[in-house]
Design a protein around this nucleic acid. Sequence first.
DNA 1: CAAAGTAGTGGACAAAGTCCACCATTATGA
DNA 2: TCATAATGGTGGACTTTGTCCACTACTTTG
Lengths: 144, 144
Amino acid sequence: MLDRNEITSIRSFNRNYTKLLGILNKRVLDTPLSWTEGRIILEIYFNQDKTPIEVANHLNLDKSYTSRILKRFEKNELLYKSPSSTDLRSKKIHLTTKGTKLAQQLDERSDQQIKDLLINLSPQQQQEFYEAVETIDKLLFNRK
Amino acid sequence: MLDRNEITSIRSFNRNYTKLLGILNKRVLDTPLSWTEGRIILEIYFNQDKTPIEVANHLNLDKSYTSRILKRFEKNELLYKSPSSTDLRSKKIHLTTKGTKLAQQLDERSDQQIKDLLINLSPQQQQEFYEAVETIDKLLFNRK
DNA sequence: CAAAGTAGTGGACAAAGTCCACCATTATGA
DNA sequence: TCATAATGGTGGACTTTGTCCACTACTTTG
């Protein structure tokens, strides 16, 4: 078991990382999108043809909230909806060319953001960072 | 330099950890406090006699926002302010007994929260987690 | 086929935070 | 030393982000 000091260190790390993620996530990268809006665009980008409900569920968002954001995106011509062939209640979401471009931008800049974060570290340190991230990811979120 | 896949993994980790911290930080531990309110209470708890501005700066909060929260705390008798002896504009903040108790509760439960998070890991895994956290903390936030 | 459930939307509201203006006081520099 | 700028603290007005509820249209289930 971890002792009190170690727990304190973890809490300190969590505060630091909360702050960092807050900055990273905040106003996302010169785009006019908020963090959640960005997630939605990327979700659709990487997985065309999703329905609003699927998007909401996968990103853990309120369906009403999601609906409003999608509507805004539609108005801004980032996406359009087509009726589902099998369920008349449901719709499929597709990015427009404009939406796709924005998604790509967002994706690239998110990568760049990580690179910028690590820019002052040596290649060895970057590797060390990466491995530590993988360790935590595996331990807490049991990926692969 | 890290390659594209590694960057992608880091971004995935960041999303996961954002979500985790969101849950940890959200409704803080049976107390009636929000995350920010909790931070303010703990900030004062660990560092009595701070001024509102110092609290705001240290936690990166708007001073107006901070002022309002402090006022609420004062009304709820969690703290009181005394005039600074050297600067008539300024005030020092002190927790009341009630405020101190709440801070202690918060502190304990924050520790407990971390323990709960790691409860399913073996002692070795917990140690591994701790070391990974320390690694990242050192690399990104250069603590000692 | 009746009843229950689901996709999607909108209204009303709340929480959290930002931005601006202001007063009182303090610090600065010509 | 005095005008000017800067700072601590507060409040009003507003925005952003999100929650909760209710409702319609359709679909699924027993």
